Amino acid sequence: MLGWALVFLIVAIIAGVLGFGGIAGAAAGIAKILFFIFLVLLIVAAISAAVRGRTP
């Protein structure tokens, strides 16, 4: 999922440089959403591993 966030971030940067503002904004928004979903899943996995007593 983090890979998809990076792909959308790169698409947003390229679209912004080429002047496609709407596409750049949409891709940047998708990248942000995917990044925060990944971050939440990472925190949940770390907490569940800590509760079970395993190292991450």
Rank of each mutant, 00 (worst) to 15 (best):
Met1Glu: 06
Met1Val: 14
Leu2Glu: 12
Leu2Arg: 15
Leu2Asp: 09
Gly3Met: 01
Gly3Phe: 09
Gly3Ser: 14
Gly3Arg: 07
Gly3Asn: 08
Trp4His: 14
Trp4Pro: 09
Trp4Gly: 12
Trp4Ala: 14
Trp4Gln: 12
Ala5Trp: 07
Leu6Glu: 05
Leu6Gln: 11
Val7Lys: 03
Phe8Asn: 14
Phe8Val: 00
Phe8Trp: 03
Leu9Glu: 12
Leu9Cys: 08
Leu9Ala: 10
Leu9Pro: 03
Leu9Gln: 15
Leu9Tyr: 14
Ile10Val: 15
Ile10Cys: 06
Ile10Gly: 12
Ile10Leu: 09
Val11Phe: 06
Val11Met: 01
Ala12Thr: 11
Ala12Met: 03
Ala12Trp: 00
Ala12Arg: 02
Ile13Pro: 05
Ile13Leu: 07
Ile13Gln: 07
Ile13Val: 14
Ile13Trp: 05
Ile14His: 08
Ile14Leu: 08
Ile14Met: 00
Ala15Gln: 10
Ala15Arg: 08
Gly16Trp: 01
Gly16Ile: 03
Gly16Phe: 09
Val17His: 12
Val17Cys: 01
Leu18Cys: 04
Leu18Gly: 06
Gly19Ile: 04
Gly19Leu: 00
Phe20Thr: 11
Gly21Thr: 15
Gly21Ala: 05
Gly22Leu: 01
Gly22Trp: 03
Gly22Arg: 00
Ile23Thr: 13
Ile23Arg: 00
Ile23Glu: 02
Ile23Pro: 05
Ala24Gln: 08
Ala24Cys: 05
Ala24Ile: 02
Ala24Asp: 01
Gly25His: 03
Gly25Ser: 03
Ala26Gly: 03
Ala26Pro: 04
Ala27Val: 08
Ala28Leu: 00
Ala28Thr: 09
Ala28His: 04
Gly29Thr: 12
Gly29Ser: 10
Gly29Ala: 09
Ile30Phe: 10
Ile30Cys: 07
Ile30Asp: 04
Ile30Pro: 04
Ala31Val: 13
Ala31Asn: 07
Lys32Trp: 07
Lys32Ser: 05
Lys32Gly: 09
Ile33His: 06
Ile33Met: 07
Ile33Asp: 02
Ile33Gln: 08
Leu34Glu: 05
Leu34Asn: 05
Leu34Arg: 06
Phe35Leu: 06
Phe35Trp: 05
Phe35Gly: 05
Phe35Arg: 10
Phe36Glu: 04
Phe36Asp: 09
Ile37Tyr: 13
Ile37Cys: 01
Ile37His: 05
Phe38Glu: 09
Phe38Gly: 13
Phe38His: 13
Phe38Tyr: 15
Phe38Pro: 11
Leu39Met: 14
Leu39Trp: 12
Leu39Arg: 11
Val40Arg: 11
Leu41Lys: 15
Leu41Phe: 15
Leu42Thr: 15
Leu42Asp: 08
Leu42Gly: 10
Ile43Trp: 09
Ile43Glu: 06
Ile43Gln: 04
Val44Ile: 15
Val44Leu: 12
Ala45Leu: 13
Ile47Met: 04
Ser48Glu: 04
Ser48Trp: 10
Ala49Leu: 06
Ala50Gly: 08
Ala50Ser: 10
Ala50Asn: 14
Ala50Glu: 10
Val51Thr: 15
Val51Phe: 05
Val51Tyr: 07
Val51Asn: 05
Val51His: 13
Val51Arg: 14
Val51Ile: 15
Arg52Asp: 09
Arg52Val: 14
Gly53Phe: 02
Gly53Arg: 03
Gly53Leu: 00
Arg54Leu: 04
Arg54Cys: 00
Thr55Pro: 02
Thr55Ile: 13
Pro56Met: 01
Pro56His: 03
